[in-house]
Amino acid sequence: MIGPGETAGCLRPPVRGLTDEYGAGFVDPMHAHDWIQVLYACSGVMSVVTPSTSFVVPPQRALWLPAGQRHEVSCRGPVSLRTLYVDPALYPDPPPCRVIEVSDFLKALILKTVSFGADYDPQGHAGRVVTVLLDEIAAMPVAPYGVVMPGDARLLRVCRAILAHPADNRDVDDWARVAGMGRRTFTRAFKRETGMGLAVWRQQVRLMEALSLMAAGRPVTTIAFDVGYDSPSAFTAMFRRAYGVPPSLYALP
């Protein structure tokens, strides 16, 4: 994913959009851009990993990436992507990486901005649309699609294995052996680096995966087993504790 004219050192107009179509299994290795990126998937699910956080970006959500943020993008299936490149000069103190909700209005603004192409008059109609676009992005709530990643390579090996297979039910002792650490050392190190214990971290991964699968239209009964629960009722109870409502009432497009 290469930004338009990144070697030029500046963006004029200050926001530009690109359309890309990626096949299942596409991986864009760790890289960074000179500009802020907003990655929006019209359809399909992306995984985006930075050195400190792992995100899942389901359909009708967007990922905000500050300029210079190293990241890797992979596509679980076909992805229809719309990317906005934003001049970092507009944000002297930009927000950190985050997945945001995308309202119908914001979706229309993203698609309209992409349709302007590389050259438009920032002082004309297109420029006014872009101003509203940036205001709408700033107003969107953050969505719960990210988990903190540890810096320790041994713990990172464990976290990547769980992210790849959220239904893996191995216990703390098993994962400590995967990390090549004693149980006590493992549990202390994991909490120090992620801010939570392994069980809570894995639950967040499962919730993140479940929300992604729900957004893709998978039935709750199937999702429950896909993310490692013994029954749909156990999954529903966990989901209700986390979000206050059962999966059937959670607002997804």
Rank of each mutant, 00 (worst) to 15 (best):
V178D: 13
T131C: 12
G146M: 02
T187G: 05
I223R: 09
H31F: 02
Y85C: 06
P94G: 05
R160T: 07
G146D: 15
G124A: 10
G228C: 07
A164N: 15
P247H: 14
P51N: 03
P219A: 12
V86A: 09
M30N: 13
Y91V: 00
M214C: 02
F116H: 05
P78H: 14
F190Q: 11
L81Y: 00
T19P: 01
T222C: 01
P166W: 03
V86M: 08
V49N: 09
W35Q: 12
R76K: 04
Y91R: 07
M214V: 06
D173E: 03
L39Y: 05
A32L: 06
A216K: 08
V79P: 09
S231W: 09
V178W: 08
V158W: 13
G44P: 02
M238C: 00
S231F: 14
A8W: 11
R170W: 04
T113Y: 05
Q123S: 05
L134V: 03
R76Q: 13
P51T: 04
R70C: 09
Q69K: 11
P247F: 07
K107D: 13
H165N: 15
P166I: 09
Y40N: 10
V142G: 12
P219Y: 07
I36A: 06
L18E: 12
S47L: 09
Q37H: 00
D34L: 06
V220K: 04
E193T: 03
D152M: 00
E209C: 11
R12G: 07
H33W: 03
A199N: 08
P51W: 12
P13Y: 13
L111Q: 09
T222S: 08
F116Y: 12
V38K: 03
A143I: 03
R76L: 13
A67V: 01
D28C: 01
L133A: 07
R184V: 14
A224T: 08
A216I: 02
V15Q: 10
A251M: 11
V200S: 13
W201D: 02
S231E: 11
P166G: 01
A189P: 03
L134I: 05
T194C: 06
A242I: 01
R157H: 02
M30F: 14
G180P: 01
V132Y: 10
R170Y: 02
R218I: 00
D168Q: 12
L133W: 07
M30T: 03
A126H: 12
E193A: 01
Y250H: 14
G117F: 00
T236R: 14
H165P: 02
V158I: 10
E193D: 08
V56W: 10
F105L: 08
R61N: 03
V148P: 07
L155I: 06
A41F: 08
F225C: 03
V45T: 15
R177G: 09
F55V: 10
